[in-house]
Amino acid sequence: MERDITLIAVFAALIAALGLMPTLMLASGVPITAQSLGVMLCGTVLGAKRGGLAVLLFVALVALGLPLLAGGRGGLGVFASPTVGFVVGFPIAAFATGFVMEQLTRMSVGVAASIAAAIGGVLVLYAFGMFGFMMVLSKGFGETFAILGWYLPGDAIKVVLAGVITAGLARARPASLLSRA
């Protein structure tokens, strides 16, 4: 139990730390950040339950006003911005990533982590992110996809990184890969 709580807190801190990396703000109002990589890693390493809880803790801290999102953003105003769908979708994406990872036990860790990150960390996250973007900015699906589609190449790189990092962790410390426990 204590180990789970510690890992949840550590991975919430990892997402916050990835927000410190330089961001690139596009005209859409949605920044390019490394934080979605942290969401993917929460699922691939911790599994569905722990990964979802780690990201839920991170989102709760943001809601309380801590400036943990990329660019030092935090507080309830984030939930009225074009990024609201992504922020709300973070815990669900981590859970989905972990769930897929837990199901792909017959595949190598790296391949399974990449597939899980693509499904949970991109497809699920974009479903929420696009919906929030469309609602806040009153945009249609086509226009929203045309704007947010520019982010997909970077997310593809994050999917590969999630696979490589998770596989490396599995080789170095197999017992730490809780999504396979």
Results as ranks from 00 to 15, higher is better:
residue 1 M to Y: 09
residue 3 R to E: 15
residue 6 T to S: 15
residue 6 T to D: 01
residue 10 V to L: 14
residue 11 F to M: 10
residue 14 L to F: 11
residue 14 L to A: 06
residue 17 A to H: 07
residue 20 L to K: 04
residue 22 P to D: 01
residue 23 T to P: 00
residue 26 L to P: 00
residue 29 G to R: 14
residue 29 G to P: 09
residue 29 G to V: 12
residue 29 G to K: 12
residue 29 G to L: 07
residue 30 V to C: 11
residue 30 V to L: 11
residue 31 P to C: 13
residue 31 P to M: 13
residue 31 P to E: 10
residue 33 T to S: 15
residue 34 A to W: 13
residue 34 A to C: 11
residue 35 Q to F: 12
residue 40 M to W: 06
residue 41 L to G: 06
residue 43 G to W: 03
residue 44 T to D: 08
residue 46 L to F: 14
residue 52 G to F: 03
residue 53 L to T: 05
residue 54 A to Q: 09
residue 54 A to E: 10
residue 55 V to P: 00
residue 55 V to K: 03
residue 57 L to D: 07
residue 57 L to M: 11
residue 58 F to N: 02
residue 59 V to R: 12
residue 61 L to D: 01
residue 64 L to Q: 02
residue 64 L to I: 13
residue 64 L to Y: 03
residue 65 G to H: 10
residue 66 L to Y: 13
residue 66 L to W: 11
residue 68 L to G: 04
residue 68 L to S: 02
residue 70 A to H: 04
residue 71 G to C: 10
residue 71 G to A: 09
residue 71 G to E: 08
residue 72 G to K: 09
residue 74 G to Y: 05
residue 75 G to M: 10
residue 75 G to I: 11
residue 78 V to H: 04
residue 78 V to F: 06
residue 78 V to A: 03
residue 81 S to R: 01
residue 81 S to H: 14
residue 82 P to L: 11
residue 84 V to L: 15
residue 85 G to H: 06
residue 85 G to N: 07
residue 85 G to I: 06
residue 86 F to V: 13
residue 86 F to L: 12
residue 86 F to C: 00
residue 87 V to M: 04
residue 88 V to D: 02
residue 88 V to Q: 06
residue 88 V to Y: 10
residue 88 V to P: 12
residue 89 G to C: 09
residue 90 F to P: 03
residue 90 F to C: 00
residue 90 F to N: 07
residue 95 F to C: 07
residue 95 F to M: 04
residue 97 T to V: 00
residue 98 G to I: 10
residue 99 F to G: 03
residue 101 M to A: 15
residue 102 E to A: 01
residue 105 T to Y: 01
residue 105 T to I: 08
residue 108 S to P: 06
residue 109 V to F: 05
residue 115 I to T: 12
residue 117 A to N: 01
residue 117 A to I: 08
residue 117 A to V: 02
residue 119 I to Q: 01
residue 119 I to G: 01
residue 119 I to P: 02
residue 119 I to W: 05
residue 121 G to K: 00
residue 122 V to S: 01
residue 122 V to L: 12
residue 124 V to E: 09
residue 125 L to N: 11
residue 125 L to E: 02
residue 125 L to H: 02
residue 126 Y to W: 11
residue 126 Y to R: 11
residue 127 A to P: 11
residue 127 A to L: 15
residue 128 F to K: 06
residue 128 F to C: 13
residue 128 F to L: 11
residue 129 G to T: 05
residue 130 M to R: 00
residue 130 M to V: 15
residue 131 F to A: 15
residue 131 F to V: 15
residue 131 F to I: 14
residue 132 G to K: 03
residue 133 F to K: 03
residue 133 F to L: 08
residue 135 M to T: 14
residue 137 L to D: 01
residue 138 S to T: 08
residue 141 F to Q: 06
residue 142 G to R: 05
residue 151 Y to T: 13
residue 151 Y to C: 08
residue 152 L to C: 03
residue 154 G to I: 09
residue 155 D to G: 00
residue 156 A to N: 06
residue 157 I to T: 14
residue 158 K to M: 05
residue 159 V to Q: 01
residue 159 V to N: 00
residue 161 L to N: 04
residue 161 L to R: 06
residue 163 G to R: 05
residue 163 G to D: 08
residue 165 I to C: 03
residue 165 I to K: 03
residue 165 I to R: 02
residue 166 T to K: 09
residue 166 T to H: 04
residue 167 A to H: 07
residue 169 L to N: 04
residue 169 L to R: 04
residue 173 R to Q: 13
residue 173 R to F: 12
residue 176 S to I: 00
residue 177 L to Y: 04
residue 177 L to N: 04
residue 179 S to T: 09
residue 180 R to N: 05
residue 180 R to T: 08
